[in-house]
Nucleic acid binder design. Sequence first.
DNA 1: CTGAAAGCGCTTACAG
DNA 2: CTGAAAGCGCTTACAG
Lengths: 302, 302
Amino acid sequence: MSYVLNDDPHQSIPPETRERVHKAAQMLGYHPFTPARILRTGQSQLVLAVLPFEQIDPALARNLKALEARLAAHGLTLLCSFGQHLRTKTTHPSFNVTPTVILSYADEADPTIAAFLAPFHVPIFSMMSPETLQQAVGRMQASYLLEHGKRQLFFIASQREDVHFLMHNRLLGVRQACAQWALESPSVCIIPSSREDGRLVLRDLLAGCAPPWGICCYNDEVAFAVIAALTDEGIAIPEGAAVIGCDDIPLAPFCIPSLTTIHFDTERTLDPLVEMIMATAHGESVNEVPQMVISVIERKSA
Amino acid sequence: MSYVLNDDPHQSIPPETRERVHKAAQMLGYHPFTPARILRTGQSQLVLAVLPFEQIDPALARNLKALEARLAAHGLTLLCSFGQHLRTKTTHPSFNVTPTVILSYADEADPTIAAFLAPFHVPIFSMMSPETLQQAVGRMQASYLLEHGKRQLFFIASQREDVHFLMHNRLLGVRQACAQWALESPSVCIIPSSREDGRLVLRDLLAGCAPPWGICCYNDEVAFAVIAALTDEGIAIPEGAAVIGCDDIPLAPFCIPSLTTIHFDTERTLDPLVEMIMATAHGESVNEVPQMVISVIERKSA
DNA sequence: CTGAAAGCGCTTACAG
DNA sequence: CTGAAAGCGCTTACAG
């Protein structure tokens, strides 16, 4: 009798019977078979996070862990998928799993992503909110440098293609700040992943104008590469070139010099996010994904 | 008729009927319901990777992505779980998902992990192979430094508790190498996550003996912190202190000086791993998890 | 208080 | 060639 195995609070079962059922289950080595319950109830208590990245940023990993713990407290399981490429029907994750809600950390405007998400037929929340949040990041980077007296701004992108939509919007934000200060748009370049090539690219980029330079980097990894290049060129940081990153990775304080960067306050967004997921799992109407709070972490590189 | 929807190769259905079925499915907005199929077939085609880490190392993320793609080619879906804490029955992932195989990247000796994995009742592969692989890492780090003339060795651990079992075994490997060279065991310390504290701890550690020092770091993140501390102390790298990391993270070449480290050749292990998973999914006997190949990446820090 | 029975949506052997 | 029917393992309303 599954009332006792599931501790159904609406049923009153005599302790003796409970005991008998538990014993029998033990004897037979009984384990519930999940798909049967999901089929019967129609509810899967599963939240799927789609993370189509080549790397998982430390902040994102921490965030997901915290989210996972909170959802678990509500009886929801958080699972992650790294894939996003189109596949045949039977190799698509939706063939093997039926989430209640999807948390997409991908670019919703990307048709590949859209095609990947379509077969799930469940509510999808877009977590990266490109326009609002990412542009705010770029504006904050640029504003910080502008307020600290830099007038020659640059935006340095990375070679990673999986985060192109984030880079694009951060650059837009930098441009907005420049426009606000009535300055020209920043010069843009992609920094190669080899240290020596990075030095050459950056040297050529900066050659066009006089210091002091203000360098907005797509993220902290790019900032490390930029700082290595500046160091190899003998340029003083932050006097000659001020560098600001984004993400506040654990290594940021250990950069030489320590890295000024943008921090995402994921902790603060957690409760409203969980509430939103719970509401959706209960079939309620879909609110907006809660907005992230960001701030500058001031260190020595800018 | 599900023969046509599933393109059953054993059935010959006239094209006209196929068309009719597809049209009807389209009209009714039909979508297959996964749990029903799994219940019927008893097979879930799902592989669950358990990653109880605070962070996902870039190499691991890349590895998982590659694995995901290969498994997809065989019709298996790879999903990841970041959690591992004990929970009530109905909030445990096994309540919501039924994998065919589990890939555990955790410490199998940890009772919390064991308790977490037990309710799944499926074959579990331990991916981190602590004894063999991790000790080989420590031996390789130490041997490299010893072969380059260092005799005063140190092992620097991180504060992270989620990787304690890895640190422990890497330290064991360093000790083995020291014993082989008839040297004393290395001094050990944990480096704090604040840059200034790190400098003080490292200064005290090194004060006990004369340079040149050889410093084995648990991983590249620790190595960045160590190099920052040495730089802040004005110690020349690698002349005064040689530093070797582990993981070969993307930032390693951009360290100042660029970081000598241990590289895991995950690519090479992929095929045998996929084969092993497929065999297990088909109910065959379980082979050993294929052994990873590691090597020193020689840069400027050691 | 407790057991038998229906039905969730699939797959697949079987009858027509 | 195609439709009807059984049964996977659960939950839950219902009969005894």
